[in-house]
């Protein structure tokens, strides 16, 4: 799902300059829910833009606008993708504990999360046994067809 925001090129240029001028490896600038982080990887600086997350507070959610890692994630062999457009829920009902957390071992067929579409809850089941390496969507996050929900290793 892409929610686009106008890119402030001037800001990013300035942050990169500050990074270089001051010999820093990482510099983050934010305003409210908006943060821009410029960091030095080997061979140059990389820019990460974090889009505002949904109203949920799940600390493991990562915005889909992280373009540098998006391509890697989508082709990861352990990627579990959403089979439909809808809203992802990490727990069976509000207030209940989440189905899984990072680091959990899951068995084949185990329910990992729910995607709600047209008022019906659809369980997303583990295609095989594995370890939950990353969870990419927060509770109540909108998801599109094919969106990567989590990585199982």
């Amino acid at each position: 799902m892409t929610r686009k925001h106008p890119v402030d090129e001037e800001l990013i240029k300035r942050l990169s300059e500050l990074l270089d001028e001051n010999g820093l490896t990482e510099l983050e600038y934010g305003e409210g829910k908006w943060h821009v982080r410029v960091s030095r990887a080997s061979g140059g600086s990389a820019v990460h833009v974090a889009a505002p997350t949904s109203s949920a507070t799940d600390a493991t959610s990562a915005g889909n606008a992280e373009e540098t890692s998006a391509a890697n994630i989508a082709s990861h062999p352990g990627a579990v993708t959403s089979p439909m457009v809808g809203t992802a829920y990490s727990a069976p009902e509000p207030g209940a504990p989440a189905f899984i957390k990072v680091g959990d071992t899951v068995s084949e067929g185990q329910t990992l999360m729910l995607v709600e579409a047209m008022k019906t809850m659809n369980p997303i089941r583990a295609p095989r046994a594995g370890l939950v390496a990353q969870i990419l969507v927060g509770n109540a996050a909108p998801v599109e067809y094919g969106e990567v929900l989590l990585i199982l290793e």
């Binding site: 799902m1 892409t2 929610r3 686009k4 457009v85 909108p142 599109e144 067809y145 094919g146 969106e147």
Partner: peptide
């Protein structure tokens, strides 16, 4: 577009 949502595979019946 301001937002985009992938809704399915290429065949029109799925998308």
């Amino acid at each position: 577009a301001d937002e985009s949502v992938c809704i399915g595979e290429a065949p029109p019946s799925q998308s």
